[in-house]
Design a binder for these strands. Structure first.
Length: 337
DNA sequence: AATCCGTGGAA
DNA sequence: TTTCCAAGGAT
């Protein structure tokens, strides 16, 4: 356990010299904006800094404060979120903004417990906000921390079995004998995980804490954390109905539950594992394949020259916030209409 | 506890 | 081409 204090000190020194400059981060002398911290943390769930930066910039440009975001409509937020994926995050973001304004006087709560009661804020995000925005020592466990700790201790059990032991190690590291500069320390682990202790080719030669890393000692850091093998995802098929008339195309708002919930898109058939009737691969003019987390979809756009409800101008299509699946459809067929 | 929920980039 | 996966949360 004594190593935890040394690790913290090494990490803080390393962070002072190598911290990444990111749009949501404050300068060393300034207080972070809890709104920025929250927004960035939610956006970063299950994705990458590169994917998030333009979305973050756009959001704070349109909605500079949580009050502004709460005053928007859910459809506004979904439209701006389009392309980032996991759209329940956007709905929860909006719910959370409204709760903060209506139930917390527009002030972000500073306790893990209260933060966690808000929509879209779970174990990780509540601890991250408490640490990063308010400098409250918290146990911040994300994919980066899981990877770093798995390697430091060369944990043999695969994820998610190892989550319990990882949390024990993390407790000691985050709120053990030394809790100095919790905000910087939490962010230092994120940066280490993103730039040095990476999943595939960790740069152990330049790692500030390799001397404490059991996996480094055994020269096999890259095999940790071990993970259970994932089963293959099913292939599904469907038809997209592209109603075209007089320079306009038909769109619909999807149901509030299920895939791409609440997003706009082209009407489609159901998606199932049976290949599509009447549309042979060879006979169809178009085919879009899109891989989701739990299945891969092959969608056959079928152009229908007739009017339907809710037609919009072709040139408006790019502005309505189509999720990527339907952007792919539109990009493929637009020039042929 | 296990499943659902997106996307784009790297190797 | 295929596989893996990047700052998880809700149910």
């Amino acid at each position: 356990m004594k190593n935890d204090v040394k690790i913290r000190n090494e990490m803080l020194s390393w962070y002072d010299a190598h911290a990444r400059v990111l749009p949501w981060r404050s300068k060393p002398s300034e207080r972070p904006d809890p709104y920025y911290v929250w927004l960035s943390e939610v956006m970063l769930q299950q994705t990458t800094v590169q994917a998030v930066v333009p979305y973050f910039e756009k959001f704070i440009s349109i909605w500079p404060t949580v009050h502004d975001l709460a005053s928007a409509t859910q459809d506004d937020v979904l439209r701006e979120w389009a392309g980032l994926g996991y759209y329940s995050r956007a709905r929860n973001l909006y719910k959370c903004a409204q709760a903060i304004v209506s139930e917390h006087d527009g002030i972000f709560p500073n306790s893990v417990k209260t933060l966690k009661s808000l929509s879209g804020i779970g174990d990780y995000t509540s601890a991250a906000i408490a640490s990063i925005a308010f400098d409250i020592p918290s146990v911040v466990i994300d994919g980066n921390v899981e990877r770093v700790i798995s390697r430091l201790h060369r944990i043999d059990a695969p994820l998610p079995d190892s989550k319990t032991i990882i949390r024990e190690y993390a407790q000691n590291l985050f709120i053990g004998d030394n809790t100095d500069r919790p905000s910087c320390f939490a962010q230092s682990l994120m940066d280490l995980g993103a730039t040095i202790c990476t999943p595939k080719s960790p740069k152990c030669e330049i790692c500030p804490i390799s001397k404490y890393c059991v996996a480094f000692e055994h020269c096999d850091a890259q095999v940790y954390p071990k993970k259970r093998k994932k089963s293959k995802i099913p292939e599904k098929y469907g038809v997209a109905y592209i109603y075209v008339h007089d320079g306009k195309v038909g769109i619909e708002k999807r149901p509030e539950k299920g895939m791409l919930a609440g997003m706009v898109g082209f009407p489609t058939s159901e998606w199932n594992e049976d290949s599509v009737d009447n549309i042979d691969d060879d006979m169809s003019a178009y085919k879009i394949r899109h891989v989701f987390t739990h299945f891969a979809l092959t969608l056959y756009p079928q152009i229908i020259n007739q009017k339907t409800y809710n037609m919009i101008e072709f040139k408006e299509v790019d502005k309505i916030g189509l999720p990527t699946l339907f952007k792919k459809v539109w990009n493929m067929i637009e020039s042929d209409l």
